[in-house]
Structure formats: structure tokens, C-alpha cells
Design a protein around this nucleic acid. Sequence first.
DNA 1: TACTTTTGCTAACACTGTTAGGATAAATAA
DNA 2: TTATTTATCCTAACAGTGTTAGCAAAAGTA
Lengths: 202, 202
Amino acid sequence: MGILERKLRQKEEVKNDIICAAWNMVKTEGWQSLSIRKIADAIEYSVPVIYDHFENKEAILLEFAKKGFKMLTTQMLEAKDMHVGNPAAQIKAMADAYWNFAINDIEHYQLMFGIGMACCEIGKAMPEQESFRDLMMEPIEDLIAKNKRTDINSCLKYHTFWSVMHGLISIKIVGTSSIINDDELNKMVLDDAISGFIKNMS
Amino acid sequence: MGILERKLRQKEEVKNDIICAAWNMVKTEGWQSLSIRKIADAIEYSVPVIYDHFENKEAILLEFAKKGFKMLTTQMLEAKDMHVGNPAAQIKAMADAYWNFAINDIEHYQLMFGIGMACCEIGKAMPEQESFRDLMMEPIEDLIAKNKRTDINSCLKYHTFWSVMHGLISIKIVGTSSIINDDELNKMVLDDAISGFIKNMS
DNA sequence: TACTTTTGCTAACACTGTTAGGATAAATAA
DNA sequence: TTATTTATCCTAACAGTGTTAGCAAAAGTA
């Protein structure tokens, strides 16, 4: 009896509709104006149906946050794989990938790190965040090993790297001033910071 | 007739009560649970009275954001004045001041840069923000001049500095993981990043 | 056909920011 | 002192928000 399977498939479809509707709203109107009632309207179901698929609103946000971390990790892994054996180039490429992800997918990035919005407890998205850290730490450790700099703490360097990246992006996202939104300058800052970061490890 | 003056004074007192009540709530329960109704309850007035003193909720937030920028600027100016003639030491001291302000006054910092909350349009707090930039740019320009590095763009370096600082802090504030909240490591990252930043300008 | 389960709705609860309109108190004018 | 105006302040509502209890109808099973 494939009835059960059809039902499961249909249920999954509704869940997918919820996610799609939510994402469309976020993309056009921002996280601020995402509401359960509007989602229900968009999928042409009543409000409680949404609670059959998600425990609460936060669970919907968490879904997007997890997806965001996966996308970021994938894109950074791609960048890394293009420069095997050259950790410095890997770091540079991964910084660019990070930057591009954040700029092209501001809504995901905003949610993942709670920029200008009440974010879900991103601690719950931790597994995804950890794989990002592991990925980023590898070329840093490689570079340290390559330069025989046993005095350098890789964990510390990873945090520094992340801080520059995240600071630059979140200032850009939250800021409205013309200076801050000069993407050419921002790219220069990024390049300068990362090249300085690499130089300090050689 | 001092009646008018007394009335103005009393009105100012109520406004002050609103600010105090709001701040107490934020300090004990966070920005998330600050509401007009709770403020009204705390000051023992009805809700609309608050709208006699503030146009809306955002105006209350803006008040705190401005105050935050003033406090930050004051504390950084103090740090700067303790190392006149030594731009590198000034930068280091100002970084520490920035860090200390953010850590001891998380609520102000959160609001000023919209970390984990829907912030007011901080563009409106711009005058206060500009004086912060001017203050921070001076020692950077001094250091560049001192080291005769005419190839270095001070504006770019200022952004780099700010990005590291802000990134480090906002990751710490939004994060819940144990690693991220290891203040000793964070301080090490800060020191390392700033010393690298200074080294790159010599 | 009768019973059970699933599905999805209406309507409510407890909140939020914001405002219209009226009542009371205070200051001024007759 | 009384009447009138003005400032003060509150009640009650509007339009939202997330969330859930409870019921009606549809679908599947005995």
C-alpha cells in the first residue's frame, strides 16, 4: 500500500512549500517581516498547519541557519580544493569565498550570526559550525608547519582570521553610511587584512 | 513665575524615569524583553505617557545608542591621552579600551551595532560615530607618518582595525560555545591581531 | 455501514507597538 | 468665586505578533 508513502510525500511537499514561502518573503521583505500568518497565507493553509511541520518559528529559522552553514562550508571547500599544496593561496581563496557568500547571501549570513536581528540560538547549529572551523583551520596549520613556526597557535590564528572576516561583513551589513558600503574599499580592506595575516605567519 | 520651570523639570524627571526603567529592564532581561508596556508599569504611568516623551520605541533605543557612542569615544580618548607621542602604544591602548567597553557594557554595544537584535537605524547616530572614527584614525595616520609609509592608506587601515575589533566582539557576544567565550583566548587573539596590525605598518 | 484516525480549520490567549478620544485636574480669565 | 480654557493622563481600542485548545470534516479501516 503506497498510500502511506504518498501521504508522507505530500506532507514533505507542504513542509517544502513553507520553507519556500518563508524564503521568498525574507528575500523580498527581510527577516523583520517574516511571520507565521503570512507564511500560512502564502501556502494557502491555516496557521496551525505550520506547527505540524515545525515546532515553532525558531525551528524554521534554524533550518535556514543550518542550510547557510552547509552552503558556506561547501563554497569554502571548493575554494580550498583549487589550491592544494599551497596553504597561503588556500587561505586567500577561502577568504574570498567567505566574502562572496556573505555578500551574495546576506539573509543567510544575517541569520547565521544574528546581524541586525534576533537570531535563533546558533549553538544548536553547532555541528555545521564545527565543520566550518575544521575546514578553515587546516590551511592555517599547514602554513604554520610549512614555515616551521612552532611558536604560533593555530587556534588563535583561526579566531583572528574569522574576526576580520566577520567584522568586515557585519559592519557592512548593519551600516548604512556611504563609506562602509563602498564595496571596492571593502574588498581592498579584505585583501590587505588577509595578506597581512598570511605575512605574519611567515 | 517658576511654575513653568517646575513643570519642565517634572517632565524631564519622568523622561529620566523612563530611561532608567528601560535600562534596568535591559540589564536584567536583555533587549528582547523590553516593552513599552513594561516600562509604563515600572514608572507607574499609563502607556501613552511614554509617547509624550519619545516618538516611538526606536527613539528610546536611539537615545541609548548615542549614549553608547559617547561612552566609547570618551573611554578611547582617555586611553589615547595616556600615550601621547607614541602612536603604536596609543593604538594598543585604544584597542584595549574598545574591548573593555564592549565586554563591560554588552547591552550598549549590542544596540550600537545590532548584534543579535533588531537595532535602530544607527545611521541616525552618525555624528557620534564619526567622532569615533576621527579619534581612531589619528594614531594610525601618526604611525604611518612616523614610519614614512606613504604607500599605506590610513582609511583602509582604520577599517581593518575596526573589523578585527568588531568581529572578535560580535562573535563572542552572539556565540554560546565554550571556546568562543574563553576570555583569555579572546584577549590573546586581540593582542596578537593588534600587534600584527601595528607590525604591518612599520 | 460503523468506527477510528488523520487532517485542517476556527477561534481564542497572551503578548507586542501605537493612537484616538474622553475624563480629570490645573491654570487662567471674568 | 466662578467660568473657561488648557494641559495632563487614562481607558480602550486597532492591528499586528507567536502559539494552542478544541472541534468538524474527510479519509482510511473493520
